[in-house]
Design a binder for these strands. Structure first.
Length: 458
RNA sequence: GGCGACAUCGCCAAGUGGUAAGGCAAAGGUCUGCAAAAUCUUUAUCCCCGGUUCGAAUCCGGGUGUCGCCUCCA
């Protein structure tokens, strides 16, 4: 198993701290708004990472934190004119709903920043005692110049950072790259009591204390979007190593951006889509297919045409399974012979190469094609097994059975019978009318060698 | 100014030294009353220039283009 590690800029053999037990920490949302379709990428990708490690027989613990106190929540609270805590609650709920709709399994732990204030204060005090932190007027900053290899994750050098390139410099800091550990509360803002007065923690601290609490010292994989490399993850490393001297995580994985017509999605460019809105138009597995059809580290361009294509592609895989008359309940007797096993091996080779999901998907289609040629049911079993590793076919139980009322089923059979009679009498228009009308109702008729089959359109 | 990523068929996309996976779309054939599904067939020499090599989409150098990061950001 090889994983590309941002820390070393190369693919490395993956060796977990504890054999067969893998710890993953992924930076979760700041709950100040509905999350956008770009945020769905790390959610879906690390969902697959977890599923794949489990498929290989590991016990996986995935932590995804929820940042529920931050400047952005305060801004949103002013805009919506409701308290910060209500903003947090509202958008945390929305996050959980929408990520669930995307088919992303809940993390094993979903710690909230506000539950860790005490821990964060402890860490900041520790940093202060070791003179990595200094306080000015109730604000506390981390001093990056005291950190001996600051910049090692992002490859940036302190003297090359162009201070104020995008955000105006805070002149009370000793060095422009110093970052906030504790922020003094303005009147009316949410606040907690600390040795430096009332205020709130800075963003970069929560992940350090949460991961430490839930995993102990060094854990296996820290993940997130590529934009978090600097400064967020850089600052996490600086704090963790300054306080204990231990590595925070062994492997750092970062997914590329989702772009809109080649450009980064942002509110100011007015090319911003929430996952919630996209889910109204496309099903979750089409969205998943879209993301997984490209390697996670590459930028991916989003548009509706691609999603439509993805939807068609995943539907075709479902077609293969549905047409096979596969019986989910009785598949335990199916065994893989060598010719089938080789597809499984190829899939694992692809996934072991830094999660090459694009190639893994190609193998699903090879299996589908092979089945349609030789009709070996064990290929369908493998297709489902591997598809589920990528998070597909969650809907299979429902789509394989036309789950409707017996009375409706009888009605459909009756109509098919009438249509058969019309066909025998060569009254094509009447026969086609029945088929078209049923289609309007979402019932698809197919004439096969075994007679007319029907299914509910999903 | 510093750092980095990317450029493969109409569209999406894998491939990192041995002669171009896969998906979507399109065209034609088989099957069908028609349709759907399935199936067969057809469609690229890899941004440009130069170099290394028996051999390069893959390595090196130089261009061109697109995008990103340099303390909001997945």
């Amino acid at each position: 198993m090889k994983i590309y590690n941002t820390l070393t800029n190369k693919k490395e053999e993956f060796i977990p701290v504890i054999k067969d037990e893998i710890s993953i920490y992924v930076c979760g949302p700041t709950v100040y708004n509905f999350f956008h379709i770009g945020n769905a990428r790390p959610l879906i990708f690390f969902d697959v990472v977890k599923k794949y490690f489990e498929y290989l027989g590991n016990k996986v613990t995935l932590v995804r934190n929820i940042t529920d106190i931050d400047d952005k929540l305060i801004d949103q609270s002013l805009e919506e004119k409701i308290p910060v805590a209500d903003i947090a609650e509202k958008y945390t709920k929305a996050f959980l709903e929408d990520s669930g709709s995307l088919g992303v399994s809940p993390a094993d732990h979903q710690p909230k920043a506000t539950e860790y204030i005490g821990e964060m204060i402890k860490l900041i005090k520790e940093l202060e005692e070791r003179s990595y932190a200094y306080e000015i007027n109730g604000d506390v900053y981390f001093s990056v110049t005291n950190s001996k290899d600051y910049g090692k994750l992002s490859g940036k050098k302190l003297d090359e950072l162009q201070a104020g390139a995008r955000v105006k410099t805070n002149k009370q800091k000793k060095h422009p790259a110093d970052f906030t550990l504790w922020k003094k509360a303005k009147p009316g803002e949410p606040k907690w009591t600390s040795p430096w007065g009332e205020g709130r923690p800075g963003w970069h601290t929560e992940c350090v204390v949460m991961s430490r609490k839930l995993f102990g010292k060094t854990f296996d994989i820290h993940g997130g979007g590529i934009d978090l490399i600097f400064p967020h993850h850089e600052n996490e490393i600086a704090q963790a190593e300054a306080s204990t001297g231990n590595k925070l995580a062994n492997y750092w994985m970062h997914n590329g951006y989702l772009n809109i017509e080649g450009e980064k999605m942002s509110k100011s460019l007015d090319n911003f889509f929430t996952a919630r809105d996209i889910l109204k138009k496309f099903n979750a597995e089409a969205i998943r297919f879209f993301f997984l059809s490209k390697h996670y580290r590459s930028p991916i361009d989003f548009n509706e045409k691609i999603l439509e294509e993805s939807q068609q592609a995943i539907r075709n895989l479902y077609n293969t399974i549905e047409n096979s008359g596969y019986d989910l309940k009785n598949d335990i007797y199916l065994k893989y012979d060598d010719s089938v096993q080789k597809y499984k091996d190829k899939f694992i080779v692809a996934m072991n190469d830094d999660f090459n999901t694009a190639k893994a998907i190609a193998i699903l289609f090879e299996i589908s094609k092979a089945y349609n040629k030789i009709n070996d049911k064990s290929l369908i079993k493998l297709l489902i097994e591997l598809g589920k590793v990528l998070g597909f076919f969650s809907d299979l139980e429902r789509t394989l059975s036309n789950n409707i009322e017996p009375i409706s089923e009888k009605l459909i059979s009756l109509l098919i019978e009438y249509r058969d009679n019309f066909k025998l009498e060569k009254k094509w228009e009447l026969a086609d009318a029945i088929r078209d009308d049923l289609k309007e109702l979402g019932i698809i008729l197919k004439d096969t060698l075994n007679g007319t089959e029907w299914k509910i359109k999903k």
